[in-house]
Design a protein around this nucleic acid. Structure first.
Length: 713
DNA sequence: TTGCCTCGAGATCA
DNA sequence: CTCGAGGCAA
């Protein structure tokens, strides 16, 4: 096979040749294309000229097909052009360019995905679930902008696609990288897979900017999904349950060849970074994206004021079923970019946008049983076992009922027919009971007086929502859960020690607590389910490896109530050594940032327990160790004695977080700028305080600097 | 919470 | 071939 020429026909998906997009130089006009008879080869051309011309034509047809939604040739004609280019390139491999439309699947399967940091974070959106909440949003926008509520704001509206958010980066017009959203700050490098999506141009057209990071949603159309599953069914492969998961799975393929066979497509909805271009409004930026060859949802619109937003929502709601893609709501963005800037961003979502969600899909089903699960802290959680029902794109068979109050409020009984939905389209929830359908014989749900696992007493403190098993570590459920927590990735990170294995180990009485893990021998493990020699050795090796850890991880792994990762880290840094933390009294604990009386009480109580101290001692004795953390005395803190003023809004911190971090760094945080101010930290859309700082000659630093300080701590 | 992909390795059958 | 574990996304 020729280098760079991949496979047989890559584009014959669904028996139809679908076009890719991009453009070099000026694209021929429709008239010119039609005149040329669409078969090129009019006059004599050199092969390089012909290749260039073919590519331009193909890319242009792609653009017309995907972006303008107005193809001027048939699929068969496109097919012909495409094959012609393939043949030409096969005869003259030296003519192949990386961004030739034939080169979408160039690469070999990846070993794994690399990380890509987003230049501008990919935030999530605030949600509104009814018209009141939408009105609240509009009011907040007016308030923040100090606008009269009667003066309508111009909003850009678009359907909210149910797919996966991705970010594409173009440099000098070329697609150079693509990433998933990830945690919003960094995602996975899925460039290879994105390149196979024919509606995404490998090269921008028109007067594209030198650098562009564009955000959008990758998805599979309803039609594409149906065809994909029909094919899968025919070939006996497994079918996907919904388009969203099919799209997500397709992008996570290591082999781009497989991704190419999935009918993925994309709508772009925003600009992350752009250099060399300026826009006044969001809608203008969408127009530009379209000009540059990127596909933008044609249902996008610009409206004035709340009322028209509501109308747009109604319109989309009524069109929803007829659309060829799944949407779960409508997004409204303040159109004017200057206003967006003024509004700024709160911790994880911009203040200038809102997602008005359609009501979640609901289904009826029956409650077959209610079990009580015992958690790590002994908390008894009632879980409804449901007759499996397909709702919101997944089969739901369990739903937490949270606690007894919740059960009483909804008056849920075993045997009841209930309405189920996936809250936020994720977590299953029992919405209500259909009383009319209640059978004569229903069973009321009562809190067991004894722990269903260990038989210990169950205590329900009046006023508290949760009931707890008082068995402590004599309860095998609590032991299992705390050992699982100990081994978890974010805790001791013991690879291969999953839930199933922990359960077997506890059930076989091989371990009773976390410290027992380190006494395990390979031959004890071997013989358990799915545990032969090799696996057993791996687990032993993983245990050995986990002995070298860090203090924050270890504190977190202990599973002290209310001590999550963040507080564990704070405590580790505040005390530096475990023995210091164990010896700390209430006063010392309360002196730590973010530690209040409740957390202090739990920490004290935990270390008072002889059993806990014993486990810690045995863990250390087994060789679990970590480097001490240097605790900086107040005067040694990097910002000791400095007065700092915050202004503007920050992307990575809320105001409170930023302040807390600065205090931890030893700084004094003041509200107003004076000559005594050492630094002003200016975020987005900083106002008068920034001006004043500049006038007084006070040092101004940006958010990135603050992040650096925090990271260094 | 569910669904998807990937990997390693155990289980099963020829 | 099947399962458990791990990782990711919504």
């Amino acid at each position: 096979m020729q280098p760079g020429v991949v496979g047989p026909c890559l584009y014959s998906i669904n028996g139809m040749l679908c076009p890719p997009i991009f453009s070099v130089g000026a694209a021929p006009s429709v008239a010119a294309l039609l005149e040329s008879g669409l078969t090129t080869m009019t006059a004599k051309q050199t092969p390089p000229q012909e290749a260039t011309k073919l590519r331009a034509e193909i890319n242009d047809h792609n653009y017309r097909y995907y972006v303008l939604d107005a193809p001027v040739i048939s699929d068969a004609q496109f097919d012909k052009l495409f094959r012609k280019l393939q043949e030409l390139e096969a005869q003259h491999p030296e003519l192949i360019t990386p961004d030739s439309p034939t080169q979408r699947i160039g690469a070999k399967p990846l070993a794994g995905f690399e990380e890509i940091k987003h230049t501008v974070p990919m935030l999530s959106l605030a949600n509104a679930f009814d018209e009141d909440e939408l009105a609240d949003f509009d009011r907040r926008v007016h308030d923040r902008l100090k606008r009269d509520i009667e003066a309508p704001i111009t909003y850009s509206c678009e359907p909210k696609l149910d797919g996966l958010a991705v970010s594409l980066r173009y440099e000098a017009g070329k697609l150079v990288s693509a990433a998933t959203r990830g945690d919003g700050y960094a995602g996975e490098d899925i460039t290879q897979n994105i390149r196979t999506i024919k509606s995404i141009p490998l090269h921008l057209r028109d007067k594209f900017p030198p650098v562009l990071e564009v955000r959008g949603e990758v998805f599979i159309s309803k039609k594409g999904f149906a065809e994909l599953n029909a094919r899968a069914e025919k070939t006996g492969e497994k079918v996907f349950v919904n388009p969203r998961n099919a799209a997500a799975g397709s992008l996570r393929q290591l082999d781009p060849q497989i991704t190419a066979s999935r009918p993925l497509t994309m709508f772009c909805y925003g600009v992350g970074v752009v250099e060399g271009a300026e826009f006044k409004s969001h809608s203008e930026s969408l127009q530009a994206l379209k000009r540059w060859g990127l596909r933008v949802n044609t249902a996008a619109a610009v409206v004035k004021g709340l009322k028209q937003c509501a109308t747009y929502y109604q319109k989309m709601a009524s069109q929803r079923a007829g659309l060829d893609y799944d949407i779960d709501g409508v997004v409204f963005k303040v159109d004017d970019l200057a206003l967006q800037k003024t509004l700024g961003t709160v911790s994880r979502a911009p203040r200038w946008a809102v997602a008005y969600k359609f009501p979640a899909e609901e289904e009826n089903t029956q409650i077959e049983a209610v079990d009580f699960q015992v958690g790590r802290t002994g908390a008894l959680t009632p879980v409804a076992r449901l007759k499996p029902v397909f709702v919101g794109g997944a089969t739901v068979s369990n739903a937490t009922l949270h606690n007894m109050d919740e059960i009483a409020r909804k008056d849920v009984r075993v045997g009841d027919t209930v309405v189920v939905r996936r809250a936020g389209d994720v977590i299953p929830m029992v919405v209500s009971v259909i009383k009319e359908k209640r059978p004569k014989q229903t069973q009321e749900i009562t809190l067991p007086s004894e722990c269903p696992i260990c038989g210990s007493e169950v205590m329900h403190v009046p006023g508290e929502a949760v009931a707890r098993c008082m068995g402590g570590l004599t309860c095998s459920a609590q032991r299992k859960e705390s050992i699982k927590h100990f081994a978890a990735r974010r805790a001791m990170d013991i690879e291969g020690l999953g839930d199933k294995l922990v359960e077997q180990l506890v059930d076989h009485d091989l371990i009773h607590d976390a410290a027992d893990l380190y006494t395990l021998k390979a031959d004890q493990l071997a013989g358990l389910e799915r545990m032969a020699e090799k696996s057993a050795d791996n687990v032993i090796a993983a245990l050995e490896k986990s002995k070298t850890t860090t203090l924050p991880r270890f504190i977190y792994a202990l599973g002290i109530r209310e001590v999550g990762e963040t507080i564990a880290r704070t405590l580790a840094h505040a005390f530096g050594r475990l023995d210091k933390l164990m010896a700390a009294d209430e006063e010392a604990l309360l002196a730590v940032n973010d530690v209040g009386p409740i957390v202090a009480e739990y920490v004290l109580h935990f270390f008072q327990q002889a059993s806990n101290r014993k486990v810690i001692e045995r863990l250390q004795h087994a060789g679990v160790h970590w480097p001490a953390i240097e605790v900086k005395a107040a005067e040694d803190l990097p910002l000791a004695g400095k007065t700092v003023v915050l202004t503007g809004t920050f992307t990575h911190f809320s105001r409170e977080d930023a302040k807390a971090h600065l205090l931890a760094l030893g700084a004094k945080v003041s509200g107003s700028v004076s000559k005594k101010t050492d630094f002003v930290i200016a975020g987005e859309s900083a106002g008068s305080k920034l001006t004043k700082a500049q006038n007084l000659g006070v040092t101004v630093v940006d958010e990135a600097t603050l992040q650096k300080w925090v990271a260094a701590l």
